[in-house]
Design a protein around this nucleic acid. Sequence first.
DNA 1: AGAGCCATTGTTTTT
DNA 2: CAATGGCTCT
Length: 756
Amino acid sequence: MDVTAIIAPLNDAQREAVTTETRSTLVLAGAGSGKTRVLVHRIAWLLRVAHATPWSILAVTFTNKAAGEMRARIEPLLGGPQGGVWSGTFHAISHRLLRMHWKEAGLPQTFQIMDSDDQLRLIKKVLKALELDDSRYPPKQVAWFINSNKDEGRRPAALAQSDPSQRQMVRLYEEYEKHCARSGVVDFAELLLRAVETLRDDARLLEHYQRRFAHLLIDEFQDTNAVQYAFVKLLAGANGGVFVVGDDDQSIYGWRGARVENILRFQQDFPGTKVVRLEQNYRSTNGILKAANAVISNNTERLGKNLWTDRGEGETVKVYGAYNEHDEAQFTIERIRRFVDAGHARAECAILYRSNAQSRVFEEALLSARMPYRVYGGLRFYERQEIKDALAYLKLIENRNDDASFDRVVNTPTRGIGAKTLDEIRDEAKREGWSLWQSARSLLARKSLPARAASALEGFLRLVQELDDSIEGLPLGEQVDAVVQGSGLLEMYAKEKGDKGEARTENLGELVSAARGFDPDDAPTIVADNSIEAQGSPDGAVLLDGRAVGDPITPMAAFLAHAALEAGEGQAAEWEDCVQLMTLHSVKGLEFPLVFMTGLEDGLFPHQRSVEDGRGLEEERRLCYVGMTRAMQQLYMTYAEQRRLYGSDTFGMPSRFLREVPTDLIEEIRPRVQVARPMYASHGGALPETATRVAPGSSLYEPPAIKLGARVRHPVFGEGVVLNSEGQGAQARVQVNFERAGAKWLVMQFAKLETI
DNA sequence: AGAGCCATTGTTTTT
DNA sequence: CAATGGCTCT
């Protein structure tokens, strides 16, 4: 393997990035510009040309999927699997550090990871324990408060306690942390924060890793939050090489703490950063690209970048204004059918929408059209109830103090441990500061429970202990099998009637086979490969206290972490050729020859709640940009004039993003016959259509004459508020709720409305 | 323990 | 329009 093979397939900008010798590099990689390629080739370059050792490289990605893809692409380039390189998500890497250095991190060796679902349950418990009203402090909001503070690196002590409700929130945060500590569980945000704090506060550990990881590579840098940024900065230290790749125009996770500003900050914090822009797009035709560029250019907070391509103009972007959501679905399917009839695969087509709820109409239509499809998102394997039950038993076997797991299965299957007994246990736990397991044992020892409850509880404790004893020394798969059966879960779900029970027992079976097939070595970020560290790297990485750095991780611990960190795909990968349905968020990173962006109506997309502030709107616009740039050959953008939402009909205006595409780049497809809008339109695509150039004055380009929520005055009815509007141009009507006369529909053309 | 009833409440998602 | 959660009643 020589240098040519690594750099030959690259364009100038890509090559400049891959071969850079500056300490810090920022690659601004536009959509479809070969971002992953640059990352992969950079690693190959470091190994083969700069002669870096594998263990000096740490590559961080945003999702597990991306990490897997990166690993898969490095292999052929280097002619074999690359052991020693640490790669994975920030969470997986943090987890690995914490497992190895649990002592330094102040965690029990058997600490367990708590997912968002467990977290919410715990918060509800804490609310109850503090006797706070959960309608005044909605658990979701509390979770948001805790998580976003952790994402920003703030512990309760660092928080202002300005007003009483803020004080309560901080108290909840504190109490929540106590519960976590007591039961030895760690939530997602905690994984990161704890890892950063541990490194920060332990000079020897920090020095070891700073010296070891001479090369840091971070993907999707625009999606990093404050703690992740701190993590990078900490590990880089004063000398480490940092190579970050990102695209400010594709930052769509601001709402969960991601900070685009990190890109700007990076250049300040790492003086001398070389900035490389990848602007040549290899994915889309020029028409699509120009349209996408036009939309994103409306954002003010940009680093600036213009994608170009040397592919041909291609087809124009098509816009379709449907009567309603059913018409929208029919139209979409009809176009897919044409595409497929022309010899394409269904899997080349993607239907995108803003929110998951919108998939339903498409699913129904696809079903009745007998067209196979696959919906991304939804309930994932390790999030299923029966799987979580089984995992809870396993976690409890690992760590008796895991309260979340105790709570979950103490009475599953039912064994006569009711609310009353549990309250007793919880009271005891609160009084003594113990875990539920410890409290249960104490209550039993003191014989302070009624006989029946006592024997039921006794039975549960014994069951867990017996399971623990019986699986010792067995291979992982047999351990899981023994627990699934011995816990009674399998029997319980087998009794459940109907398909549901069957599906659940099947899933439990799948869990067992997942465990049988689980190879810790396939989860490189989860299992510490101590052998490599023990040998020390040739360039002389230190050993701490002369022993291997950190503790090894058992297969069971690795499996449980894998289940928590990588919740598994929503549906088992079916290899049938099918149409792909997903949200605009989950399409990031993918590409399709034919893309439909649907539901382009103001209020839906951009979403109502984002329209209210400017930054929110810019993020929505980036989401639109992400969607548009997924299309390789053909892009359709559709909206519905009428849509049933939350059980009532709404009349939306075409999305403002549609108006941001220059008219000469799109063709608007409209029904040829202007019929009166049918009440329940569903014309199966049979309606003759015609494609026309959009003329100024077309419905799309006529801004709404009146804003929803505006106050208006009518010569006869007096003052009121605009509730709704419908139609455009001469037919435009508005619904106004008059203070005296009540709600009325008025035709804009005739009603002499005056805004006030 | 489980069925049945009423009220509430609705983005985006990974880890 | 649902899905969810809390509640009561058997």
